[in-house]
Amino acid sequence: MAANRIRVAKDKAELVKALLASKDTTGPFQTFVEVMVFAAALGIKNKKRVPLGETSKREPSPIPQENFASLGHDLIIKLLGMTEIQDINILSSREEEYEDQRTQIFEEYANGGLEILQNELRGAVDYSERLLLVLISERGNKEQSEEEFDLSKFLT
Rank of each mutant, 00 (worst) to 15 (best):
M36S: 10
I76F: 13
R94P: 06
N89A: 14
T25L: 11
N111L: 06
E34H: 13
L75Y: 10
E115P: 00
S145G: 12
P51C: 09
E108D: 12
A39H: 09
E115R: 01
P62D: 06
Y98R: 07
I76Q: 06
Q101W: 05
R58A: 14
S70T: 07
Y109W: 11
I88D: 09
E148Y: 08
V134K: 13
R139M: 14
P60T: 00
I44H: 01
I88K: 13
S61T: 10
E148T: 08
K57F: 05
L80Y: 12
A69K: 11
E95Q: 13
R102Y: 01
N119A: 11
M82K: 06
G43R: 01
V50C: 04
S61A: 15
E143C: 06
P51H: 07
R130P: 09
E148P: 08
G81R: 05
A124Q: 03
S145M: 10
F32C: 08
L121V: 00
I85Q: 03
V50W: 11
L75Q: 13
I63H: 11
L79H: 07
H73S: 13
I44R: 04
R58E: 15
G53S: 03
I44L: 04
E107A: 14
P60C: 02
I76M: 14
L121C: 08
P60H: 03
P51S: 02
P51A: 01
E148L: 06
V33G: 07
L117K: 10
L79A: 03
G53T: 08
L132K: 12
N119L: 09
L117A: 01
R49S: 15
F38R: 00
I76S: 10
E115S: 05
I63K: 12
L80E: 05
N111V: 11
A69H: 06
L135V: 10
G53N: 09
P62T: 12
E107R: 15
E138C: 03
T55W: 09
K57I: 07
I88W: 11
A41C: 12
E108T: 12
A69D: 04
V134E: 05
T55E: 12
F29M: 01
E146D: 11
Y109K: 13
